[in-house]
Write a protein that binds this DNA or RNA. Sequence first.
DNA 1: ACCGTTTGTCCGAAATATCGGACGTTATTC
DNA 2: GAATAACGTCCGATATTTCGGACAAACGGT
Lengths: 266, 266
Amino acid sequence: MKSGGVAEKPMAEKQAEEKSTGRARGIDRVIALMEHLHSRRAPTRIADIARDTGTPRSTMYELVNTLVEARWLELRDGDGTVYFGPAMHYYGSDYLDSVDLIRKARVEVAHIAETVGETAQFCTLEGDKYLVVLNEPGRRMFRISSEIGIKVPIPWTASGRLLVDHMSADEILRFIPPDDFVLPDGRRIAQDEFLEDIRRARTQEYVRTTALVDRFTTCLAAPVRDPAGRCIATICFVVPADTTEEAQQVMIDTLKASAERLSPGR
Amino acid sequence: MKSGGVAEKPMAEKQAEEKSTGRARGIDRVIALMEHLHSRRAPTRIADIARDTGTPRSTMYELVNTLVEARWLELRDGDGTVYFGPAMHYYGSDYLDSVDLIRKARVEVAHIAETVGETAQFCTLEGDKYLVVLNEPGRRMFRISSEIGIKVPIPWTASGRLLVDHMSADEILRFIPPDDFVLPDGRRIAQDEFLEDIRRARTQEYVRTTALVDRFTTCLAAPVRDPAGRCIATICFVVPADTTEEAQQVMIDTLKASAERLSPGR
DNA sequence: ACCGTTTGTCCGAAATATCGGACGTTATTC
DNA sequence: GAATAACGTCCGATATTTCGGACAAACGGT
């Protein structure tokens, strides 16, 4: 077997079965299936999906067949594993084109990633989590797998500090789940430093963070604001921490210009 | 109402109901729903979707609610219309990243679109139709709406001439539905000219077409070939027909270089 | 202001899709 | 090479989801 074998993630079937009986609608099982694939982000064997989503095996086989036929899913490798199919890309592209801000952001992100040569992203909030919506790898491309659509705690990111800057300190601390201040390596982000970052961000109109999620990475982010001045999204660079200060200043100016162009109603 | 009102497309419910009774599984209704949205490529009212897909109204409302909750769909405008939601983008991105050739093609297409400044695309065959998989608008950006995932007759395109160049003349004419030689404006593409285009393409390793689908547009395409020499995809530019010959030569060279880099096993 | 049309919700009935388990086949382990 | 585990398919029963139609509210044209 090429993938790491049996995964032990007992979190996927949260709401797989909520009522009393184990029986569920096909569509609900399909939604659980797709969410599971997205969270694993790798081709997965059908039996594993069935187990991890709490779906009966026979049902899962039946549904997967249907979805493969519709090209929502694709059989991968020898066979035995499935992953997303081309139909998802088509529908996803339709979504991107249908949202004005995202369509414009795509142009900006592609442009600055190409000209600067570093990975650029466009991010928003979804609920109380931070989310990468667009990702354009730079020439370096040291991070291969996309994080698009993966929810991340707000304090882990530079953009997160901008996306909550319309709230008061109290509101912010009530808004963000306390556990989200703990980084993947176990370090805890001090709340007062976090709030100070946000305060500074409001005047500087950009945020820089270093060695947060990843020890050797710096994030630079600028806010996209609605006419009321509220940060509705961010555009950012993800660069090696040893990037020179001058280069970073250029990037910050680039980000501010792009963010300005993206801010609606100007 | 902002859209053209009631649409009269009696083709969407092809296989909406195939058996005898009108009853169908939820998942099949959802697949029909998504395909319908993709073919319309615009936010659509729920009742219209129900009618055009042959789904009972009450069923469609039920399903749409479920899908909106899962963020597969989004309510648009005031309300009343639905379209694809962010989840489709996330799943679609996962698909793009999971296919090696497409992941590489994304880099190439973005790069040449940025440097040349014209719209670049990456295309393949799906069944007997041509299909845009990636589309990166140039600076001009005169065509806004994406055609990603929309099936187009092979003879209408420059890329199509490359994608069938491994077949004999007979095979090609058997492969392409006869109606596909008729352009949107009613003109008919002569089969011998079409075959001659393909023959020339094989030696030149690129194709140029002008004023085919669109009177003022020229397409330039180069083949991505597998180790056996078979064209498995194309990379192309879509430019105004009055682009100078010198500029077009530069683009052809650019395409050939990119196509070469994308061709597996070299 | 009137009236016809459309929207969105609710309900009971019944057609059927989901489920569990069994079975033959293929892969993996020792 | 035998034993064990996993894979994928099939089948009948029943719990459930789909469906049609009815209804109130909102809309829109005259």
